[in-house]
């Protein structure tokens, strides 16, 4: 199971790549494997303000639908519209072409709640 070291994570299986005051968010390799073949991603609207812990995205496979929660508050600045055409990028490149949205970080203190790769790896090996 791939877990890039330079990303941050959440216990609910989101990854966060921080670049200055922006963060790119997606779901982990572990999450995509549990979901199975992704058939649809309901993307948020660019420009919406969203609060940490709220549902931002719905990822659907054939038999399940999973909510993706934003770990950070802020304004959504970009979404991966490639996923509209081919949602399987979530499966084939969860940390690359399968990124989901970008957010403008409103409160840097929220970053403290994120976990690093090692902690995340320990968590999923328990499951």
């Amino acid at each position: 199971m791939s877990i890039p070291k330079d990303f941050k994570y959440t216990f609910s299986h989101e990854w966060i790549k921080i670049e200055d005051d922006k963060a790119l968010i997606g779901v982990t390799d572990y999450a995509q494997d549990k979901l199975g073949d992704v058939v649809f991603v309901e993307l948020p609207k660019v420009g919406t303000e969203i609060e940490a812990g709220h549902e931002a995205v719905v990822i659907e496979s054939v038999k399940t639908a999973a909510d993706v929660y934003t770990p950070l508050s802020g304004k959504i600045t970009k979404v991966n519209t490639l996923l509209d055409k081919d949602p399987s990028f979530i499966n084939s490149g969860p940390y690359g072409k399968g990124w989901i949205f970008e957010i403008e970080i409103r409160d840097k203190r929220e970053l403290e709640k994120l976990i690093d790769a090692q902690v995340y790896e320990n968590k999923i090996s328990e499951d």
């Binding site: 649809f40 659907e60 054939v62 038999k63 399940t64 639908a65």
Partner: peptide, 9 residues
């Protein structure tokens, strides 16, 4: 499109 439905959602 069964994820719209009650038995999953």
């Amino acid at each position: 499109l069964q994820t719209r439905e009650q038995h999953i959602r």
